[in-house]
Design a protein around this nucleic acid. Structure first.
Length: 952
RNA sequence: GCCCGGAUGGCGGAAUUGGUAGACGCGCUGGUCUCAAACACCAGUGUCUUCAUUGGCAUGCCGGUUCGACUCCGGCUCCGGGUACCA
């Protein structure tokens, strides 16, 4: 009987389906374990061979943990809102829901084929109203909460309202907009409803915010920072520009400290944690307020005054600096051209130049700006500020190297201590004042070191960096013109997208003010629209929905939520996927708690993984979830890159009607050739299947080939290789369906794990898959002889066989516990090879081998399990074999050798060479004496028997 | 520029705590089976030297610590990822 994977895999897929084998329920008698994959966006291309890599690993852990007696939650779902389905809708008019549904069906079929042990009854789809109802509900909670710094958590906005009514906001220590004014209880109570609501928006954790955002005209929507790569949109690669717009924002900055601190308690890779820390970018420094030089009071010509300054000119500019110690070196101030205060700081003489500069800055895209980083540009505003430490008059410039979005959008320029400031000063001929005695060559470049004593620095002359910083900060605080401050790079997250295919925001507007719809009216479902494009007046697509008004009267919010909304809490929905009254029942949440193992790509480091941590912390503040961090352990599987093959067409054979001639790789340099991609599926070990190639494309039907002339590949056509992204147009996409059809799902699973360490990025290469297939066939032969007779006997195993088995058990268990998936495959292969060599077909051995293999090769393992007479479909519950060390007799005993009281060496002997410890000690001594001859040690002591080093 | 990884045979990779470097697989070579091929099986396979034994050299480069270094330390080179006028 042949190993017939098609039949076997089909049979067990059906069995699992019929018996709902992987359905999981709460079970308080078992420890729980939650293994989660990052759910995919169901794209139209279906799964390629890279997708399942992480899923296979997580499935192995899920199956392993079940074998160890855990109650395992292992779900799968779909992040089904997103741009591609909507882009497709724009082109074809097909509703994105239909496209999405079709794609999901393909995904499910492919996933089931590979034999994942998901509990499909818990599947979630973020684009289903019964799911996004709860995404909207969480949004409403964010709107209804503010962040209290004293309690260090989110609290109800209603309690803030009560507090305002009683004591105003002066003593409130909460995260709010920088420009929030102080008011008393009396003033609060005198405010109208509208005024009060406006104030509250400054505190709410989600709020409409007028800010500089990444606007992508190509996609017609704003994007978050993590959705922009190198100045273009991550999806589609369209240019992105900076634009000031009113958008929903999430006050993620309120959680900045907790997001940094929480990283210490999770088992994630250092690289990823570091990436998040950098993204949050906590920097310690000080804020300093510079008062604007008032020309009137100093008796200057009033024509010089800023034009709009009559009533509302700014009296001071605040900057943030990490180097307050350099304050005496300030020779100019730079502010971002986008700031509101620019006009009020511009004098009439400079107005023309300033306007021109602002226009120029606005005309540049992110990409332009980034590529011209080195170029100095800027313009003088005509105004000055006063350095509070030495009362010097300092000119204010505009320059686009200062970002409106970071700090206050204003920077003090210290050319001696900062290279960019130095460049700027050189360009505009501003003074460069050395402030440390160690600074000499100010003509060449800035010196940002903190070594030496201060000079030219008033009150800090002669002090060191540490002393100076303290003196200055104290002075600032005493005078009330500044203070020590912690600044974050992290911005509040933009939460609107001007697109159709996303969660509607459950908000309507009365005039300018947003109000939440009633909770009982959730979900607010997507309305039907005629076209998936912005309206003629430039409103988002939802503006097309006819009669879509709250209570028939008020405008709904027309933008939708961003892609990360639905994915920021989905792991809770799996716990209780069909709950209609809550995100999930408290019972379920308190049982499953948090994700024990999360597997997915590192590309989500500063997006999904950060937002999810943020929402999780918020949900914890609400008392809805028990854990501060949602994923205890995270593994980033490496990306699978494409591996393209090339053929080389002779240039003279190109053109209409000519017979194409192809030159083999080894000879191509002798001819003029064109490199052409060839379908990797008709190339094996770089050898082209010529027949298949001729049939591949009609043009090649009569192709001729110049083959290798020498070496082991003589007479073959060899293709070239390059590593590229997996993409249809390079013909390098390897589809799991094809492989499952050729060698079966078990082989595919085994092979993907065998490729190398999970975390490592690697090109896909089907070359070695035969080895995995062979391993499975060898396993099969332990059960059947050449004639197809079942040969397993119920006999007592001998020590040699037990030794092979137990060595395998030990290694498999150790490696799985440290997530070393590839070495497990090697171990299993060794075990099968050795059992084959021993001609071992004993039931006691084989049934344990089958269990060891089952996480990797579920289908054939289930089949063999039944063949061994065990009940069908039951390799599940606490059956992982026990490691029995008795049979690991062949060990090395190690002898540490001391010379002059210090352990200098270890010598080890296999036990079978050692009749006794004493003899071993003597032997070791003799060897050491010989070995050390000439080195003349005073005394050599051998301490017998220490450690047992297990060898196979 | 800054931060984080990595570099081991022809190839993918192993070596878990400083202790036999190259497990396992691919490929290749030879053999068995076959009329022949494919499949399968068996053996060999870092490199130099040698008929062979043996021996020398080998984990990107230079140096250090150690009885002993792929592993630890210092200094480079190259590759990959992240991030960027972040004040």
């Amino acid at each position: 009987m042949e190993y017939n994977f098609k039949e076997i895999e089909q049979k067990w897929r059906q069995f699992w389906e019929d018996n709902q084998t992987f359905k999981t329920d709460i079970n308080h008698n078992k420890p729980k374990y939650y293994v989660l994959d990052m759910f995919p966006y169901p794209s139209g291309a279906g799964l390629h061979v890279g997708h399942p890599l992480g899923y296979i690993a997580s499935d192995i852990i899920a199956r392993y943990k079940r074998l160890k007696g855990f109650n395992v939650l292992h779900p799968m779902g779909f992040d089904s809102f997103g741009l591609p389905a909507e882009q497709y809708a724009i082109q074809t008019g097909q509703h994105p829901a239909i496209t999405t549904e079709e794609n999901i069906n393909t995904y499910i079929r492919q996933l089931k084929q590979i034999g994942f042990s998901y509990d499909w009854s818990r599947e979630v789809r973020t684009s289903e109203p019964n799911y996004y109802k709860w995404t909207q509900w969480i949004f409403m909670q964010l709107f209804n909460h503010y962040y209290d710094k004293n309690a260090n958590k989110a609290l109800k906005i209603s309690s803030l309202i009560e507090f305002f009514a009683e004591s105003g906001n002066k003593t409130v220590n909460a995260v709010c907009d920088e420009d929030t004014a102080i008011f008393t209880a009396e003033e609060w109570n005198l405010m109208g409803e509208e005024q009060q609501q406006k104030v509250l928006l400054k505190y709410r954790l989600t709020f409409p915010d007028e800010s500089v955002v990444n606007w992508c005209p190509g996609l017609g929507t704003v994007l978050a920072n993590d959705e922009v790569k190198d100045g273009v949109s991550e999806r589609g690669g369209f240019p992105v520009e900076q634009k000031k717009m009113k958008q929903w924002a999430m006050r993620i900055t309120a959680y900045a400290d907790r997001l940094i601190d929480g990283l210490n308690e999770v088992d994630w890779s250092d690289a990823l944690k570091e990436q998040q820390r950098n993204w949050i970018g906590r920097s310690t420094g000080a804020s300093v307020r510079f008062s604007v030089f008032d020309a009137r009071s100093s008796g200057q010509n009033s024509e010089d005054l800023p034009q709009t300054s009559k009533n509302e000119h700014r009296t001071s500019i605040e900057v943030f600096t990490t180097r307050v110690d350099t304050i005496y070196g300030v020779s100019f101030m730079v502010i971002a051209p986008e700031l509101d205060s620019v006009p009020s700081l511009t004098t009439s003489e400079q107005k023309e130049a300033v306007d021109e500069y602002i226009k120029w800055v606005a005309s540049r895209t992110e990409l332009d700006r980034m590529s011209e980083v080195k170029k100095v540009s800027g313009v003088f505003t005509g105004s000055y500020v006063i350095n509070p430490f030495n009362n010097e008059k300092i000119p204010i410039y505009l320059a686009d190297y200062v970002l409106a979005g970071y700090g206050t959008g204003a920077v003090m320029g210290v050319p001696s201590g900062d290279q960019r400031d130095w460049n700027f000063a050189k360009h505009f001929n501003l003074p460069i004042v050395p402030i440390l005695d160690a600074q000499k060559d100010m003509d060449e470049q800035a010196d940002n070191t903190k070594e030496g004593k201060y000079i030219n620095s008033g009150m800090i002359n002669g002090l060191t960096y540490k002393e100076a910083t303290k003196v200055l900060t104290d002075f600032l605080e005493e005078k009330g013109i500044g203070k020590g401050k912690i600044q974050y790079r992290l911005r509040n997250a933009v939460f609107s997208r001007q697109r159709y295919w996303g969660e509607p925001v459950p908000v309507y507007f009365k005039g300018d003010l947003p109000y939440l719809i009633e909770e009982s009216e959730l979900p607010l479902t997507l309305p039907v629209i005629d076209k998936y494009l912005p309206t003629e007046t430039g409103e988002p697509p939802l503006g097309r929905a006819e009669g879509w008004k709250y209570q028939g009267e008020y405008e709904y919010e027309l933008s939708t939520m961003p892609g990360w909304a639905g994915s920021s809490w989905y792991w809770y929905r799996y716990m209780d996927a069909h709950n209609e009254n809550e995100i999930a029942s408290p019972e379920a949440i308190n049982y499953w708690k948090a994700v024990d193992l999360y597997i997915g790509g590192s590309e989500h480091a500063t997006g999904h993984l950060l937002y999810s941590r943020f929402w999780n912390k918020f949900l914890k503040d609400l008392g809805l979830v028990p854990e501060e961090e949602f994923a205890k352990k995270l593994i980033n599987q490496g990306m699978i890159q494409g591996r393209s093959n090339f053929v080389y067409r002779l240039k003279s054979s190109e053109g209409q009607g000519k017979n194409p001639i192809f030159i083999s790789y080894g000879l191509k340099d002798k001819y003029e050739v064109t490199d052409l991609h060839v379908d990797v599926n008709i190339v094996s070990n770089e050898i082209l299947d010529i027949e298949a190639f001729r049939n591949w494309q009609p043009d090649y039907k009569n192709a001729e080939f110049i083959l290798e002339e020498t070496g082991s590949n003589q007479g073959k056509y060899i293709c070239g290789v390059e590593i590229e992204k997996m993409s249809k147009r390079w013909y390098n996409v390897v589809n799991p369906d094809t492989l499952v059809d050729k060698v079966g799902a078990d082989t595919l699973r085994l092979y993907e794990m065998f490729l190398g360490p999970l975390e490592q990025a690697k090109p896909w290469n089907t070359n070695g898959i035969d080895g995995s297939f062979r391993f499975i066939k060898k396993t099969w032969r332990l059960f059947y002889d050449d004639l197809g007779n079942f040969k397993v006997k119920d006999e007592t195993p001998n020590p040699a066989e037990l030794k092979v088995l137990h060595a395998c058990i030990k290694k498999v268990e150790e490696d799985l516990e440290r997530y070393s998936f590839n070495t497990v495959v090697s171990t299993l292969m060794i075990c099968v090879n050795e059992l084959g060599a021993l001609k071992c077909s004993k039931k006691a051995i084989l049934q344990e081998l089958v269990i060891l293999m089952s996480p990797y090769t579920p289908h054939i393992s289930e089949e063999l399990w039944t063949l061994l007479g065990n009940k069908a479909g039951t390799i599940s519950y606490a059956q992982f074999p026990k490691f029995n060390p008795v049979y690991l007799v062949e060990a090395n005993f190690e002898y540490p050798i001391s010379i002059n009281g210090k352990v200098r060496a270890n010598i080890s002997f296999p036990t079978d060479a050692l009749p006794s410890d004493i003899e071993a000690g003597v032997l070791a001594n003799e060897i050491v004496q010989k070995w050390l001859e000439g080195k003349a040690p005073k005394k050599v002591i051998v301490v017998p028997k220490r450690i047992v080093n297990v060898v196979r």
